[in-house]
Amino acid sequence: MENGILTEAQQKDAELIELLLEKVVKKKGFENIRANAEGYDTPAKIRRSKDSEEYFIPDVTGEVNGRKSYFELGLKTDDERQVVTKWRLLSSLAAYKHGKLYLAVPRGHMAFTNRLLADYPIQAEVVKI
């Protein structure tokens, strides 16, 4: 697993990413799957800004009918600003590529995810895992 902004801070569990892949990505028929996990190609790094050396790495990306979608784990964190920045960026990229941003939310993290989506202009589909 490669570390970008938030990847290390949130301690994303490889088991949760595997669960996301099995229950959401593969079930919905996505192809060209890239995941920030063992056994998969790592998704492309997305720079925070033109002049920045910092970058985000999506948890999972996939394509269906030529439309690229992004998949993220919706996990509670103290650094809300970074999460909102990443989700807004991925939501915009997904819309640009005629895809969607999917937020896979494990048990205990739904209220946090829903609050952020209500407070900020982020287009995302929430999926329980």
Rank of each mutant, 00 (worst) to 15 (best):
R67T: 09
A14F: 04
E22G: 00
E15I: 00
V24P: 01
G62N: 09
R67K: 15
E22F: 01
V25S: 03
E38T: 06
E72C: 09
V64E: 09
L20N: 00
E38D: 07
R48N: 13
L73V: 09
A44H: 10
R47A: 12
K28T: 01
V25E: 06
Y40V: 10
K76L: 08
T42Q: 11
A35H: 02
R47G: 10
G66K: 13
A44M: 07
L19F: 01
L73P: 10
G29E: 03
E53M: 10
Y70W: 13
P58D: 14
P58Q: 14
P43H: 07
F30P: 02
I5Q: 07
I5Y: 03
V24G: 05
Q11T: 03
I57A: 06
R48T: 15
R47E: 09
D78A: 08
F71N: 08
N65E: 15
K68H: 06
K68T: 11
V60W: 14
A37V: 04
R67Y: 11
K28Y: 03
I33S: 07
D13A: 00
S52W: 12
E54S: 15
P43A: 12
V60D: 15
E63M: 12
Y70V: 14
K12Y: 03
K50L: 09
E31Y: 01
G62W: 10
R48D: 13
G74D: 13
N36V: 04
N65M: 15
N32M: 08
G66S: 14
K23S: 02
K28L: 02
E8W: 05
V60E: 14
F30N: 02
E18M: 04
E63K: 12
K12D: 01
P43N: 12
Y70T: 13
L16M: 05
I5M: 05
V25F: 07
T7W: 02
E2V: 05
E53A: 10
L75W: 05
T61F: 10
I57V: 12
G39A: 08
I33H: 06
A35T: 06
S49N: 15
K23I: 01
K45G: 12
G29Q: 02
K26S: 01
T7D: 12
T61S: 11
L73T: 07
N3W: 06
G62F: 09
D78L: 08
R67H: 13
A44E: 13
D51S: 13
D59G: 15
E2F: 03
E22H: 03
S69E: 12
S49Y: 14
G29H: 02
R34N: 05
P58C: 12
E8N: 08
E72W: 08
E38C: 00
E15K: 00
S49V: 14
K28S: 00
V24R: 05
D78V: 06
G29T: 04
T7L: 01
E31L: 06
K50V: 06
K27I: 05
Y70G: 14
T7P: 00
E53W: 06
D13P: 00
E54G: 11
A37C: 04
Y55V: 13
K26H: 02
L19R: 03
I17N: 00
I5H: 06
S52T: 15
